[in-house]
Design a protein around this nucleic acid. Structure first.
Lengths: 343, 343
DNA sequence: TTTCAACACTACCACGTTTTCGTAAACCAA
DNA sequence: TTGGTTTACGAAAACGTGGTAGTGTTGAAA
């Protein structure tokens, strides 16, 4: 078990100074060829690699970016990570991931932990609790310290920073419109509780689509679900009354539960009940029937978010004083993926 | 935009030495109460937090662990990460994630990148390509440098280190046995190509269960699939011939594809065809019919792996010279989750 | 012989922290 | 006053790196 070799050890071994070694390895012309080659050979033999920590300390750059997301066991979020990681890796960055578990405290803790030098910038999606509380001091603080933050998907207007989102409202509108186009009249919306920003926006799109088509906007058809487990009961009741002939669910878990419930009750999808879900994921694809979804390319979001962050990081390098904080909000386009749950 | 404050700045501001500040903040009795409180108040006001990078350099500990997995958009792996993250966080560690994309080169690159001081230890699952090549020099190298490695799920006997696995053979045996118990005679095995270690083991368990029950082991019933896309064609052909009445699939993607194919052909699951899948995931749960699976608790694996790594990290602290490398291999228990795809 | 440039390398500083050692001042006992 | 102890703090090294500035030697031109 040999510890990693350092410049100092090489220097000692070859009886030259540390700086000579350093310069030799960087091929500086200051160093004579003989010495240079000797050092390089030695370094290669002992597999010298500069210590990242020391470099980070010196350069005040860690070349790693922090990701904070509510949970990782979630198709959408893992695709986003995938997207971030791709771009990060291409640019020589590593990725540090922390999970907030949808808890405000954990989000704050994780941010503080990473903000103390561990990373160069953040990419994050807000936890439910944070959105509920509306307390973003931990984020502003980080930003004030000059650490760039890019938010995605679950964002807030209360924070000025780069953002990557999809046009939730427009996408919801499109989905509901397609249901209407297929002759559906009573379209239910199955959504989460309001404080999750995206839930609100999708509801808005749903409402607008109905009104634009002269259909009544009926509060009773908006089913707010906090917990997936309660979904089945609520749904079966409404299905029993045949209260609707189509469902727009804000996520695929709701959608698949609805389909399963409907099937149990002898209803046919899509004949008796058409279903569209937000967030294209693995469940929709493999459900029976497979579910028509609004694609929400997590990978693209991740790509974009990483690009924005890295651009800002490298730009900062150049002009440090000039505070040109022209934050942008990037909108990733969505489209409907037609599958078996709609006709 | 104020940069984070440092000890030096505090020292300068209060006109004391850096050491005085450091000691005051650590509540050293060496420092007089007046000075101590003054420093503490000042530090609190400016929200001083020690710089992690500097601490890492000093302590030769980064308090972060590196995870290298083939892909993240994969239910099993994300549950493992979840498990790792839980334990890591509890013990004050962060988690750095790199994806090998099932590529040998990326795996090597990522390891080298992280090994240069960025992390204290690795938790990893081998990429397919690495298993195929059988080249593990990058891992031995890291281990030789004194950096602990814990492997999980896709492991190799060629490396001496701590491991967390499930008893793939026994689990496969149990699954196949349960099919036999239900009166199935012609049980097909749908598996991946051999070089993925777990695929081999599961095949062994399958074979043993058949032989132990006096059933013929028929090579024709072992269907090796490299790509999910080709799965459907292969399967439909065999289903057409009614070559088997039960399927044991080594992952849930295969299983759900088989079920879908069978349904299309008018076969009923489980009446005409019973299906069991390895790797309990989200698809199995929400498939129609839902799929009986061998649970493979990724979370538990992650927990265990993290525990083992951290234990070793903290232990190393104590006895540095004494090389007590009593590596252990932890076996996580599995059990069958009965669902609708079997009777 | 002096001067000056080129060469080959070394010294030193900074990054932020902790820790060991040192020491000045104050106090006390003899 | 002397010697010794305590109190309260400071200086400096160390972790590993990289850049700037500096130093000493050599050889050649003036």
């Amino acid at each position: 078990m040999k510890r990693k070799i350092t410049l100092k050890q090489i220097a000692k071994e070859l009886d030259v100074s540390i700086s000579t070694v350093s310069k030799s390895l960087r091929n500086s012309l200051e160093i004579g060829e003989e010495t240079r080659l000797k050092v390089q050979a030695f370094a290669k033999f002992y597999n010298y690699k500069p210590n990242n920590i020391a470099l980070s300390l010196k350069n005040r750059k860690t070349k790693s970016i922090g990701i904070i997301i509510p949970e990782i066991v979630h198709y959408f979020f893992s695709t986003v990570i995938n997207g971030i990681e791709q771009v990060a890796n291409e640019n020589g960055y590593s990725v540090v991931i922390c999970l907030s578990d949808d808890s405000f405290d954990k989000e704050v803790l994780n941010m503080e932990m990473l903000a103390n030098g561990s990373i160069d910038g953040f990419i994050m999606s807000l936890s439910k609790e944070t959105q509920y509380k509306g307390d973003f001091h931990h984020i502003t603080e980080v930003i004030n310290q000059g650490m760039p933050v890019v938010m995605f998907d679950r964002v807030t207007n209360d924070i000025l920073c780069d953002k990557v989102i999809i046009d939730d409202k427009a996408a919801a509108y499109e989905a509901v419109q397609s249901l209407i186009d297929n002759g559906r009249k009573k379209i239910a919306l199955v959504t989460t509780v309001d404080y999750v920003s995206v839930g609100k926006l999708r509801t808005d799109g749903y409402e607008k689509a109905l009104l634009d088509n002269g259909l009544p906007f009926n509060e009773d058809l908006i089913i707010k679900i906090e917990d997936v487990d309660t979904c089945e009961i609520t749904i079966s009741q409404l299905l029993h009354d045949r209260a609707f002939d189509a469902v727009f669910a804000v996520n695929e878990l709701f959608a698949v539960t609805i389909i399963k419930t409907a099937s149990k009750m002898g209803l046919k999808v899509p004949e008796d009940l058409a279903v569209i879900a937000f967030t294209d994921g693995i469940i929709s694809k493999y459900s029976t029937p497979s579910i028509t979804t609004v694609s929400q390319s997590g990978e693209k979001m991740g790509n974009k978010a990483a690009k924005m962050l890295i651009e800002r990081l490298e730009a900062e390098h150049v002009d440090d004083d000039e505070e040109n904080e022209n934050y942008t909000t990037e909108v990733i386009e969505t489209h409907l993926i037609q599958r078996e749950s709609t006709d």
